[in-house]
Simulated assay, not measured.
Amino acid sequence: MEKRQLGPCVTFFPQPTTLVSSVGNDGQVNIMTASWVGIVSKTPPTMAVSLNVNRATYEQIRQTGCFVVNLVPASLAVEADFCGLKSGRDEDKLIAAGLTPVPASKVAAPLLDESPLNVECVLRDEVELGEYRLLLGEIVEIHAAEQAFTESGSMDARVFDPLVYLGGIREYWNLGQKQADAYKDGKQLFEKKP
Results as ranks from 00 to 15, higher is better:
N54M: 14
D125T: 04
Q63G: 10
P44F: 13
D185L: 09
E2Q: 12
G38D: 07
G88S: 05
K3F: 07
I39Q: 02
R55L: 15
R89H: 14
I31K: 00
P73D: 05
D156G: 03
V164E: 01
E128N: 10
P73K: 02
S87C: 09
S21W: 07
G84L: 10
D125Y: 06
I169A: 05
T64A: 12
S75G: 10
P45R: 02
T17I: 09
P116Y: 08
V49E: 12
E91G: 00
F82E: 13
A48T: 07
G27N: 10
L111Y: 11
D161I: 02
T57Y: 08
E171V: 09
V78Y: 06
D113R: 13
P16R: 06
V10G: 03
I39M: 07
T11E: 10
G137W: 04
R4H: 13
P110I: 03
S35F: 09
P101Y: 13
D113E: 14
R170I: 04
I61K: 00
A180E: 03
Q60I: 02
Q63H: 06
V140E: 10
E141A: 15
M32K: 00
T100Q: 12
Y58F: 15
Y165E: 05
P101A: 15
T17R: 00
N25Q: 14
K193N: 09
I31M: 11
D26N: 12
S41V: 06
G84I: 06
M155L: 15
R158V: 07
C121P: 04
Q60L: 04
M32Q: 06
Y165G: 08
L166N: 02
E138R: 04
K42F: 09
T64N: 13
L85F: 12
Q15T: 08
L163W: 13
A144P: 00
C121F: 04
R158M: 05
S35G: 15
S87F: 12
L112A: 03
H143Q: 13
D90K: 15
E141N: 07
M1D: 03
Q188C: 04
G137Q: 02
V37R: 01
R133N: 07
P116T: 12
D156Y: 05
I169M: 10
Y58Q: 02
I61D: 01
L189W: 14
Y172C: 06
A108Q: 08
T46G: 06
D181C: 10
M32C: 09
D181Y: 14
V37F: 12
G38Y: 03
V68G: 06
E151Q: 14
Q147S: 15
S50I: 07
A34M: 10
T57L: 11
I31E: 01
G88A: 11
F12E: 02
Q60Y: 11
A97E: 08
V119Q: 01
A148N: 04
A109T: 15
C83E: 07
K3Q: 11
V20M: 12
T100D: 05
E128R: 12
K93Y: 11
D161S: 13
A48K: 00
M47Y: 11
E146S: 13
G167V: 02
A77M: 14
K42W: 08
A104D: 03
V23G: 01
K86E: 04
S152F: 03
D161Q: 06
A180W: 11
E79M: 06
D185I: 01
V53I: 15
L117Q: 03
